[in-house]
Amino acid sequence: MAANVAKKTAKKTPGQLANFTKGFIKENPVFVFLLGLCPALAVTSTLETSLGMGLLVVFVLVLSNIVVSLIKNFIPKEVKIPSYIVIISTFVTMVGLLTEAYAENLFESLGIFIPLIVVNCLILGRAESFASKNNVVSSAIDGLGMALGFTFALMLIGVSREFLSTGAIAYGEYLPLGVSGSIFNFDTHLFNMAVFGGPAGGFIVIGVILAILQAIDLNKKKKAEIARQKMIEEKKRLALERKRKKELESAGGQA
């Protein structure tokens, strides 16, 4: 539903669309700002746990952004940060209880990383730098976009790690989907590098992804640089031509 709202509003004002999508690539909290690396490493050994963590963050971030922007005018400046922490930890506690009740497998596998959403810099960061300065709708959209960007990053890491470590992508194991099984099940030892399911694999996978992003970024910059160089040369050439033309004209005049 929240996504629909976002789309509708996005149609009306193109600014909101950018506000929504910026979290995915341009300002991706994990890949660009290195926020929330703890959960990005710890709960991403499978796709499902990554998605589960992402959904919890969506819930907490959207709600806390809404609440913070709603009450931003009532909170005294002196106790701004403490109030945000209280609001966030309230939602995290609620989310933890709900998860334990309705998705106990996810709760088991996320373990202490559910209470640790409280200290995820992303959430406090958005409350502090965006929600406390903008209206409710923008804050909600910003929260949703950022959290989905976070989820996207987690899922990207999760899918790589699960595939590398097991050769398959399982579903229904942790989330209460009602069905379970696996897709892309390569029944071969080739895709069975258990190390990627473990701690070391987390660091390495994120490192590789960041390197690829950095390479793309560098590539772009390089292309832009080449284009700029070409433009400058073109300008120089034009200037030279003009100069020659002038010289020719002046020479012709003399003649």
Binding site: V86, I87, S89, T90, T93, L97, L98, A101
Partner: peptide
């Protein structure tokens, strides 16, 4: 916040 947490607790 106390009420919200307590409410969720009662629910779950």
């Amino acid at each position: 916040s106390g009420t919200l947490i307590w409410g969720t607790h009662t629910l779950t």
